[in-house]
Design a protein around this nucleic acid. Sequence first.
DNA 1: GATTTTCTTTTACGCCCGTAAAGATTTGAA
DNA 2: TTCAAATCTTTACGGGCGTAAAAGAAAATC
Lengths: 340, 340
Amino acid sequence: MKIRNMEQFAAASGISRPTVSKYFNDPESVRKSTRERIEAALEKFDYRPNFYAMNQNRRLTKNIGVVVANLADPFFAEISRNIEQLIVEAGFRPILVSSHGSPEEEADALDSLRSIKPAGVLLGPLGRTSDSEAVRAFCNDVPTVLFDSDIEGAGEAFVGSDNDQSIGLIVDYLCRTGEPPAFFEMDQPPNPNAFKRRNAYLAAMDRLGHAPNLVQVPGEGWDFEEIGFREGTRLMSENALPTNTVLCSNDRLAIGFLSAAYELGKKVGLGSDCVLRVAGHDDHPFSRYTCPSLTTVAQDYRAIADTATRKILNIIETGEREEGRKTHLFDGKLVMRGSA
Amino acid sequence: MKIRNMEQFAAASGISRPTVSKYFNDPESVRKSTRERIEAALEKFDYRPNFYAMNQNRRLTKNIGVVVANLADPFFAEISRNIEQLIVEAGFRPILVSSHGSPEEEADALDSLRSIKPAGVLLGPLGRTSDSEAVRAFCNDVPTVLFDSDIEGAGEAFVGSDNDQSIGLIVDYLCRTGEPPAFFEMDQPPNPNAFKRRNAYLAAMDRLGHAPNLVQVPGEGWDFEEIGFREGTRLMSENALPTNTVLCSNDRLAIGFLSAAYELGKKVGLGSDCVLRVAGHDDHPFSRYTCPSLTTVAQDYRAIADTATRKILNIIETGEREEGRKTHLFDGKLVMRGSA
DNA sequence: GATTTTCTTTTACGCCCGTAAAGATTTGAA
DNA sequence: TTCAAATCTTTACGGGCGTAAAAGAAAATC
């Protein structure tokens, strides 16, 4: 016999439909003996409630939107993998969407999520280029927790890395072990972390009593490796680098920069035959395999994913939009490899 | 005034509800003047039909599932980006799910997609490790087009790369310009393309009258870079490479291998000071930035995404499950860079 | 202008399930 | 055993929309 709807399934399991409905909403909400009878029937008939009918009249669906700036960036791929897993474990359903680096797509994604009535949303926004009005409007309607990039006043909370701490860490390290670093970055970075990191660099250099060296190269958009390669090539072939130590604003820039150094025959690393030290920030999954392997600061992916997810689940379950927007920042860890 | 449902929106636009419903199902299905009136009202009231109510009674939803083996792999990230875009342009809604390299998650993903009643699914399966019974069962219920990895007898069609052609191309090139290559691969690759490539290598070498050299290193799972690095290090430090030219089964293995060569001080490339040539396969987004940059064969991402998407859209629109499962294979293009 | 064709309106029903309220039953503690 | 609390059943309604059929209106054809 083929079960067609909850009515029939309820009959087959010998439980009333409202109770079965309650079970599917939250298995713990029914008595143990009832739960067992339903689960026994489930084994026999493999029925699943109609997804659409189920969500139509629910005050809150069991869907949680996950919007990331750019899935092609392994950082976001990795963090959304963690988040998805946690959401599933909590009995919710993740809906993963990428903005592909475009503000319009980000706004579209939020708009489109709205029609799915998610119980909550985890948003890793574009940042500087986001349509911040649209984002704030969305956050007013749907409980949202931001991660990675902050947008002022948007969402219930922000979870990210403490750029002051992490940049401080690597600047300390670089200064301690050689020439103080110059800071290599794009002049128009899409991501607000870039600004925080720049300021953190300036502060750290100041604290250590060194004159800062900002190297701001023309560049916008998300093709970081390309920009790092192109501008690195230009700077090095013009001998325009102010120091022999370069701290890149993120690992993807550093990956391009290292590639440029290799092509130009400039040996990077710590050995006596090396002319350059290069460091990055993020511990991008590929940075272990650059040549030489990249010294960097690891962001605590798991802690970020974990905290952001717990935060949104808590808001959903208590129904309380917390008062006072909170910010959770995690420390980075120094990852010493061959490049600096 | 706030529009709460289609009834109210229909009233506000001066059109009957069934016609409005028809419009949302397919804007082209109503008269132009009617369409214009509805769209004028849309500007004023920004109403959107309830996603759940909308899909509940439709024979076919406007959702298309996109399931990929591993979103953390930039190949899948890139191809799913293309697919998503094409689906949106066609007026459908993509639902992106990653299996994260796990057969259980793949089966779960399909199961979970089923309850969403997708009009069709584009599946880039794990391949060898897939639960092929579950996949075939799914394909029986839901029109599915496979891409990247094939599973025999599953789905309406398969779209991928012609490994015979692409491997032939690079083997030809390598033989023409130096010592014939050895083929570097894992002994337990998760992906069936690996087997096809191995056979293509054997055939190409045979055709050119060279003795083949298979280097099968212990390795399973998806940590290709790690395996390439570890086993590359081992082989090179033991001087166990049979030739000075290595063709890796895919770019990610090559990335690890190149990193290992660098660490060991073995110069890779074409110069007279180089002791090794290394090539890959796929044109992975990162392969431009390896040291030296990686010579490889580019898969035609766009053509694969395009064909697979058009295929599923066609099946959906005509309602015909084509008879006779078709296979579409695209040629690779040689990408000559520094490593070989 | 008459006729055919195409599109729209009206009316009505059903999809599958969430939810509410009231009464019946079970459970667990006093 | 008694009684209150927890849980379940029954009954009933409604959500927002797809869809079908019949009748009406508009556009296209001649």
